[in-house]
Simulated scan of single mutants.
Amino acid sequence: MAEQMNGPVETGAAMDYSEHDKTYAMFLAGAKYGTITLVALMIAMAIFFFTGAGGIVSFLSFFVLSIGGGWLAR
């Protein structure tokens, strides 16, 4: 006859939850600041392509939007 098993057969290695939390926090920060940077880049590209502002104004707008968005997202 088969044995009666109650619970998991194999539990595996113990989890390092503090390291897991640090990795998850770094992933969330990277996703947040990466999204802010990409949105600022798209806005700066729209300023460059669809207005007569030029490259310097476009770069400055990218810089200001990236810094401002990062400051607001803290």
Rank of each mutant, 00 (worst) to 15 (best):
W71C: 08
L41M: 09
A31W: 04
L60V: 14
G30F: 05
W71V: 15
A31D: 06
V39R: 01
T37Y: 09
S58I: 04
G52T: 10
I67A: 12
L28Q: 06
L60I: 14
S66E: 07
F50V: 05
L60N: 10
V57I: 10
G69E: 00
F63G: 03
A29H: 12
F63H: 11
V64P: 04
M45G: 04
W71K: 12
G34V: 02
V57S: 07
S66A: 14
F27Q: 09
S66Q: 13
G70I: 10
G69T: 04
G34D: 02
F59K: 00
G52P: 00
V39D: 02
G30N: 11
F27T: 07
K32E: 04
F62C: 06
G55K: 14
T37G: 08
A40I: 12
L28N: 07
A53H: 01
F48H: 11
T37K: 03
M45V: 13
G69N: 01
F50R: 03
K32R: 14
F63L: 15
G34C: 04
F63K: 03
K32V: 09
V57L: 05
F62P: 06
F27N: 07
F27Y: 14
G55W: 13
M26A: 12
A53Y: 01
F27E: 06
A29T: 14
S58C: 04
G55H: 15
G30I: 06
G69L: 00
W71L: 15
L60E: 10
A44Q: 03
G68I: 10
G30K: 06
S61T: 15
L28F: 03
I67Q: 10
L38W: 08
A46D: 07
L28I: 05
T35F: 14
I47P: 01
A31G: 14
L38C: 08
G54S: 10
F59P: 03
F62N: 02
L28E: 03
G69Y: 00
F59H: 03
T51N: 06
L41W: 11
F62Q: 08
L65I: 13
V64G: 07
S66W: 15
S61H: 08
F62K: 03
G70P: 13
T35M: 11
F50S: 01
Y33P: 05
F27D: 05
I56T: 13
A53M: 05
T37L: 13
L38D: 00
T51I: 11
A44G: 04
L28R: 09
F50M: 02
S66N: 12
L60F: 13
M26K: 09
I43T: 09
G34A: 02
T35S: 03
L38E: 02
I47N: 07
F27H: 09
F27I: 12
G52H: 07
V39Q: 01
V57R: 01
T51M: 08
V39I: 15
F27L: 13
S58K: 02
V57N: 05
S58T: 08
F49H: 10
V39W: 06
S66P: 04
S61E: 07
V57W: 05
V64W: 13
A53P: 00
L41T: 09
S58A: 14
V39A: 00
V39T: 11
G69V: 02
M45T: 13
L60W: 14
L65C: 06
I67D: 11
L41H: 11
L65W: 12
G34W: 00
F27R: 06
A46K: 09
A29D: 08
G30E: 05
V64I: 15
G52A: 04
F62S: 01
W71T: 12
G69M: 00
F50Y: 11
F59I: 11
F50P: 05
